[in-house]
Design a protein around this nucleic acid. Structure first.
Lengths: 253, 253
DNA sequence: TCAAGTTGTCTAACTTTCTCGACAACTTGA
DNA sequence: TCAAGTTGTCGAGAAAGTTAGACAACTTGA
């Protein structure tokens, strides 16, 4: 670290560079609404004074925000807060990833990375899907909007209940459509757990995120209307690109 | 960075130190269930080989995990995955922060940092609470469990609708109890938005987190049973300590 | 046209991180 | 008891990453 006093966490700031902390600070103000979209950010000189660092350090922070498409720098005139383009993912009783992606949902596309039948799935998966000793079907998925990856998911199903599912998982990558093709018309969201952490290297690569980016981990169990478990999903959303909208009311699809 | 090949994001790994990436990797495996609680982590020598770094670098990563109470190192025998102690926060139609904190909810305590009547609240707040030109009451809160801060919240209310609320917000810090004291018996969760980002310096300090830690931002609007808005909450949870449990079914309080 | 203010680029100095080696302290099982 | 394997500690050198200062290129408004 440098010499001056600057925003400092309570402990162990070590290894977390000044420009990163400044970027976090500015990001908080931007997404928190303190600096509205379209407005001009304080100049690099002013920000350097405010955080008591060299202008170049501020530039690095601003560059990071620009890489996230949060701001746009224009030489000669200034740096401006971009229009917020976070996607909104609805979570409700009848959540479908495909049709839940806000205004730009049309451009969404899913891609099946891999599928496999696991004869010995992890114990927690087997328990949640009440597999007993039946094999599990595992799907590895990536969902993108406008060419930008949004989420990396792992889906688990009872392999014997959804024969031929993989063949029906088309290029648009709709789980709902694939399930319909194997005779399952409707399913409901049973439970949803949400947590957050830093992305692993593999996740960061697959989501085209810089190292150390945040992911929102959504673990969801979907059941058939009569209650038996059908689909267990573990989805890692790029936190910088997605916001989750929890639906409480009795479901308006 | 060093010379060897190691887990590397798709772009801009710069400034994100090797030990941090290794820590993210191990954290992903631990919370993802690949390495179950109680099991022994690979030895520092093995991990150094696996990530192609010096043992000292691995030690720094493991030290970070130990600071998060995710692992416990025992000299002579090894490093072990700790029992998971994340708190579970339920989010549902009748969510109350006070009574939603899993098995250890009893030890929870809230603290009022500051309260103020804002004659000119932010536009988005005024709109959500349908304030017109009435003043808003703003409460700044910190919630801790076992002495460890869990969440940092900002609550907004219509100041004229809840006169004397602050005086009733006791040392246990229950919003529900305070509202009851001013005559509001029941309220419902209307909408909940969840996002994630790195903590700002102030948030990290208040939550006693290392710089750059992740927060889950939950923005919730609560209404009276008849539908008029009552309480707008912006709560930042320490992602390392809390998991959100979304309740979909018709509410079992 | 010009001055002031802005972002972009370059080179150099600095600080931190990472590497490397060696040894100590402790636990476990043979 | 002992050997093997583990985490803990120390010191010093090398390689990054980070910060700093000066100047160029561009925009805007007077």
């Amino acid at each position: 670290m440098g010499t001056g006093s600057r925003p400092t966490g309570s402990r162990s700031t070590s290894g977390y560079s000044a420009w990163r902390m400044i970027a976090d600070e500015l990001r908080g103000e931007i997404v928190g609404g303190t600096v509205p979209p379209g407005s001009k950010l304080a100049s690099e000189t002013e920000l350097a004074q405010r955080f008591d660092v060299h202008r170049h350090t501020v530039r690095q922070a601003v560059a990071a925000l620009a890489a996230d498409h949060l701001v746009v720098a224009r030489r000669g005139s200034g740096t401006f807060v971009a229009e917020h383009t976070v996607l909104v993912h609805r979570i409700g009783l009848r959540t479908r990833l495909t049709d839940s992606l806000g205004p730009r949902g049309a451009a969404a596309s899913g891609r099946l990375l891999e599928s496999a039948v696991e004869t010995a799935p992890p114990a927690d998966i087997a328990e949640r899907l009440r597999l007993a000793d039946r094999p599990a079907l595992r799907l590895e998925l990536v969902r993108s909007v406008d060419g930008l990856p949004i989420a990396r998911g792992t889906a688990w199903l009872d392999a014997e209940r959804v024969p031929g599912l993989v063949e029906h998982y088309g290029p648009e990558g709709s789980m709902t459509a694939a399930l319909r093709a194997v005779g399952i018309q409707d399913y409901l969201r049973d439970s949803t757990m949400i947590s957050g952490r830093a992305a692993t290297a593999a996740e960061a690569a697959e989501l085209e995120l810089p190292a150390g980016s945040m992911v929102l981990v959504v673990r969801a169990l979907n059941t058939l209307p009569e209650g038996s478990p059908l689909l267990y999903n573990v989805t890692r959303f790029a936190a910088a690109r997605v916001e989750l909208d929890v639906q409480h009311s009795i479901d308006a699809p």
